[in-house]
């Protein structure tokens, strides 16, 4: 019995670690792709865009509301919401959605959204 439990635990940790490593690699690619100076190494890089919106969120509930809704918008690949910076950082597939569509989706939740200017 103990052996079974240990084996199961090991399997779960190993499989999750493998899966996470794969995702982590993809996340790294995301950083590379979205950097202005980063060379476009992979074909997939052309299919991903990033947009940062200034969104006036004032509490944790607002953050959750944005997170829970925008995460499931068509074409959204990655999402980071910052209460401190009042930003919603989205990685999306331009073939499936657009800045305007995403802006409209945020505004439909009752928040004003504007594209944050690149520094």
């Amino acid at each position: 019995m103990t052996k079974i439990i240990i084996l199961a635990l090991a399997a779960i940790i190993a499989s999750s670690a493998t899966a996470s490593a794969a995702n982590f690699q993809e996340a790294t690619n995301f950083v590379e792709q979205t950097s202005d100076n980063a060379p476009k190494k992979k074909k997939a890089a052309k299919e991903v865009k990033r947009v940062v919106f200034n969104v006036h969120m004032h509490c944790a509930s607002c953050v959750k509301k944005v997170q829970e809704n925008i995460a499931f918008e068509k074409g959204v690949k990655d999402l980071k919401v910052s209460l401190d910076e009042h930003t919603v950082d989205i990685l999306y597939d331009p073939a499936k959605t657009s800045e305007q569509t995403l802006k409209a989706a945020i505004e439909a939740l009752g928040y004003h959204a504007s594209v944050k200017a690149e520094k």
Binding site: S16, A19, V63, V76, D78, L79, V81, S82, E85
Partner: peptide
């Protein structure tokens, strides 16, 4: 359970903090 854990989608949400 172990098998299911191996199948992952590739999307992620994170709120800073």
């Amino acid at each position: 359970l172990a098998m299911v854990l191996c199948t992952n989608a590739y999307v992620f949400a994170q709120v800073y903090g």
